[in-house]
Simulated assay, not measured.
Amino acid sequence: MIKRVFLIVLDSCGIGELPDAAQYGDVGSNTLKSCSASSKFSTPNMAKLGLFNIDGVDFCKPEPRPTGCFGKLAEKSRGKDTTIGHWEIAGIVSEKPLPTYPNGFPKEVLDEFEKRTGRKVLCNKPYSGTEVIKDYGKEAIETGALIVYTSADSVFQIAAHEDYVPVEKLYEYCRIAREILTGDHSVGRVIARPFTGEWPYVRTSNRHDFSLEPYGVTTLDSLKKAGYDTVSVGKIVDIFAGRGITDFVRIKNNTDGMDKTIDIAKNKDFNGLCFVNLVDFDMVYGHRNDVDGYANALTEFDVRLGQLQKVMRDGDVVMITADHGCDPATPSTDHSREYIPFLAFGTDVKSGVNIGVRSCFSDINATVLDIFGVKNEGAGESFLEEIRK
């Protein structure tokens, strides 16, 4: 009987362009394929589970006898960002994309933000997070202004030097922005982007996301309501605005995230879902077009996955997936519209089952709820009977 599910999201590890990729400028994107070409790429544990047996994966040798279940899922929502991707995994299909601001935020939004924070705004355009502090950091320190910028995603990002704007004060400014950004301006995330040091400055690990609250019932909501535990590792608690979560741990990076997941698997008695997000794939490597860095991060995850396998108990299931793509080998530094992979294994899971190509990320939601016998109030169709022993 399954008691604990570990759902691990390799943030941005897409597995090939979706049929509508052209609408998003993402024809040819394949994040995993790009990483597999690097000499830093080695994922024997995921290969053994069936990663390279997934339909359409023709760039690595398939496993003759995969030990896990495997497949891929298409995104039904209109978008390709973290919020929409995770929400769809959790049962919410977004028919309308979240607002983006290729020309910066409108005057009425920034006027209200400046009025309520008492600080002026610099930049107000799409920008690289590392370049924006290099270009505007000195002026921000000299004038006391806040650096506000966005990207191709639905985000309102605020950068400030920790020595001049303490982290908690920056978080307060983010909460103000979150209150302002409603209605037509309901961006997916307001993100605190603190930096430190001398020019050209470095970003710190004190990033914090202030997300839009999900507008439908999620896997987490349903499980918590039914009395099950829901444990967040990493920024899951932020993506879902804290809703439906009974416990959470924050992490510094992918390695720390997997170490804490392994510790939970080894030492925490719970009955329900441990939902994990590993963001470095996307934030540190994908957006910076660092193919070798991304490939090496997948290699390091695979090592930790082997350690997780050793501490798993009877009744545990591990599911590995993604939320979108971010192909580090394409000229774009933005997310890409891709299929996401799916791997599952555990004592109660069959070996060698190909679930094929699923039409919606939310099939994961339906399957997790089915495991615990909880009614699905969201989207998705369960494939539990295909994979359960």
Results as ranks from 00 to 15, higher is better:
S332C: 13
M258H: 09
D269F: 01
T261N: 06
D229F: 04
D327E: 07
I239Q: 03
N267C: 05
D323C: 06
D292Q: 08
V318S: 13
V291G: 01
V249L: 12
V237P: 00
D209L: 07
A329Y: 06
M258C: 07
R313S: 09
F301M: 02
Q309T: 12
R250K: 04
L278W: 02
G234D: 04
Y285S: 02
G306N: 09
V311A: 06
E213P: 01
S211G: 11
I236W: 03
V284Y: 08
H335S: 15
L298V: 11
M319G: 10
D323F: 05
D209N: 13
D280E: 12
N271Y: 12
F240T: 03
N206G: 02
H287T: 08
K225C: 11
D229N: 12
A322D: 14
A322P: 11
L308Q: 09
I262F: 04
H287W: 08
K310A: 12
F281M: 13
D269R: 03
V249H: 10
G216I: 02
I251V: 14
F275I: 10
V318P: 00
P331E: 15
D263I: 08
H324E: 12
Q309R: 15
A297K: 02
D280H: 08
C274R: 09
N253D: 14
D302Y: 04
S336G: 05
I264T: 04
A329M: 07
G325E: 13
L212S: 05
L273Y: 05
L273H: 03
N253H: 04
H335Y: 13
N296P: 00
S222Y: 00
L278T: 01
H287S: 10
N277I: 05
H335E: 08
S222W: 00
D290P: 04
D334C: 11
K235H: 07
N296T: 01
I239C: 04
F248C: 10
V233S: 05
T333N: 14
D256W: 11
G244H: 02
V217E: 01
D327W: 03
A322H: 06
P214K: 02
D280L: 07
S332D: 13
P214D: 01
G244I: 02
I236Y: 05
F270G: 00
D229R: 10
S336C: 11
F281Y: 14
T333H: 14
D323G: 04
A322C: 13
R203E: 09
Q309E: 14
D221P: 01
N253S: 07
G227T: 13
T261E: 05
V249E: 09
V202N: 14
Y215A: 01
L298K: 05
D292I: 10
V233G: 04
P214I: 00
G272I: 08
Y294R: 06
